[in-house]
């Protein structure tokens, strides 16, 4: 049974339709990447899966149950979301932020117990932020902050984790660090990872399957080798793409081609 099953999904922002007739199935433990150009509906799809946007049409099932049958708290026990950014107006410490991942399991009044603190400590250790435990969130670098939010998601003990461009604005070393972390998270905890990414090469290196969106519709679903085809990418992104095999594992390596080299292709 797939952990996520989407049938003919339509999503709207007000009157503007952003997704049309999306169908996808994600299996347990899969590393699933959603790619596509700006405005193709990637983040909207992620929000739809987390019930943060109302469904205009179609059906989403999470672990065999309709998404709308879950209360917010029940859903948060199954799905964790790592947003692109969080507000830092009233910053908590790293330890307090990670511990907030226990909120869906505690409800309104229950205070965190020893088991919750142990899970938060384990999550901080896993994401290598233990040494930052007493620092405030606004005092961290972008990469450190992203690892803290991932630790919070880990502390939530979800079956599915949704990440919205977690590597945006990070340097290559930190991008790999975050992707390796998610790879390890999936391997050790068996968690299903669904990630929105703009980086086609990272998607090729880590994704089991890719969903390519274009103008709010599914362009293609498949393995990186099946999806990352130069002609298809050129049509979606509106610029010439060079697709080669990388020398590491033979996965596709995508290079957008500047205008000045376009005659060479």
């Amino acid at each position: 049974m797939p952990v996520i099953s989407v049938q003919g999904l339509d999503l709207c922002y007000g009157k503007r339709q952003v997704l049309q007739d999306i169908t996808m199935q994600v299996q347990r433990g899969e590393f699933y990447l959603i790619i596509g150009p700006n405005g193709s509906g990637k983040t909207s799809l992620l929000k739809g899966l987390a019930n943060l946007l109302p469904i205009a049409g179609g059906r989403i099932e999470i672990l065999g149950r309709p998404l709308t049958s879950y209360t917010r708290r029940q859903l948060a026990q199954k799905i964790a979301v790592v947003p692109q950014q969080i507000s830092l107006d009233f910053p908590f410490t790293v330890a307090d932020t990670v511990l907030m991942g226990r909120a869906p399991h505690l409800g309104l009044m229950r205070v965190e117990g020893a088991a919750d603190h142990a899970l938060a400590t384990e999550a901080m250790h896993f994401t290598d932020v233990t040494h930052l435990a007493d620092r405030r969130l606004d005092q961290l670098s972008g990469g450190e902050r992203q690892r803290v939010i991932i630790a919070r998601a880990l502390c939530q003990q979800p079956e599915i984790i949704l990440l919205d461009e977690p590597t945006a604005s990070l340097d290559p070393a930190h991008q790999i660090q975050i992707m390796d972390l998610m790879e390890r998270f999936r391997a050790e905890k068996g968690t299903t990872v669904i990630m929105v990414s703009h980086d086609l090469n990272l998607a090729a290196l880590y994704g089991d399957r890719l969903l390519l969106l274009h103008n709010g519709r599914t362009e293609m679903v498949g393995s990186p080798v099946e999806v990352l085809i130069a002609e298809r990418l050129a049509a979606c992104y509106g610029c010439a793409m060079l697709v080669e095999k990388d020398s590491l594992g033979g996965m596709p390596r995508v290079t957008p081609v500047p205008q000045k080299y376009s005659q060479i292709l």
Binding site: K47, A50, L52, R72, P83, S87, G101, A103
Partner: peptide
Amino acid sequence: LAGHESAAALGV
């Protein structure tokens, strides 16, 4: 405090 979507994703 972390934002409305973030709070909703944590069960609020």
